[in-house]
């Protein structure tokens, strides 16, 4: 996958498959420390320790449609190729936290990509999800909470196409300004 945002979408699908009702996506970009950290926390069914130990093996999956589970191993590979790593912490019955680290300036680090498209895609498929997205760039933070939007919307569902299209534009603007304005695509996709 060419974008970290696509990996994020994929990991949220894992969380949803695990029955999560709450998901927190956190992205931290630290230029001085040359670090990019993505953390995805869910309150799904979790995994036992024996399972966690072999979860990065592509042949570890509870899928029934095919014999390989690629999501986590693909992201682990991407992280390691960019001077980072992937960690999975999980507790059966409580939930899971996946942390992917990268060297921010590493040549092989995939670009962050289209995070707004990922977020609206998550909300399209899981409108009831308590989704929080927190993105920090060198100490400046933007936070998006789906329930705050849903509260404003009253009886209008957040997954209405007009609402999601609006939210995508809104998130694009916020992320552009978080990354220091500019507005050209190279900056947006950094």
């Amino acid at each position: 996958m060419e974008e970290l945002a696509l990996h994020i979408l994929d990991l949220v699908q894992n969380a949803l498959a695990a029955g999560a009702t709450e998901v927190v996506i956190e992205i931290k970009e630290d230029t001085a420390g040359d670090r990019l950290v993505i953390t995805i926390t869910d309150n799904g069914c979790g995994m036992d320790q024996e399972f966690v130990r072999r979860v990065l093996d592509p042949f570890t999956t509870t899928r029934t449609t095919r014999r390989v589970g690629l999501g986590l191993s693909l992201l682990a590979m991407a992280a390691r190729q960019a001077g980072g790593d992937l960690q999975v912490a999980s507790e059966k019955g409580k939930g899971t936290t996946v942390t992917a680290t990268f060297r921010l300036q590493h040549w092989d680090r995939p670009p962050l990509g289209d995070v707004p498209a990922t977020l609206v895609t998550v909300l399209a498929g899981a409108p009831k999800l308590d989704l929080t997205y927190r993105h920090t760039v060198d100490g400046r933070t933007f936070t998006f909470r789906a329930w705050e939007v849903q509260r404003e919307l009253g009886g209008v569902p957040i997954n209405d196409p007009k609402v999601l299209t609006f939210l995508k534009r809104y998130l694009e603007e916020e992320l552009t300004s978080l990354h220091g304005g500019g507005g050209d695509d190279a900056e947006k996709l950094r």
Binding site: M1, L6, T118, V120, T121, A124
Partner: peptide, 13 residues
């Protein structure tokens, strides 16, 4: 997702 489903989803919306 790897094949481009997210872009298809946003195009549909």
């Amino acid at each position: 997702i790897a094949a481009g489903a997210r872009e298809v989803m946003t195009a549909i919306l």
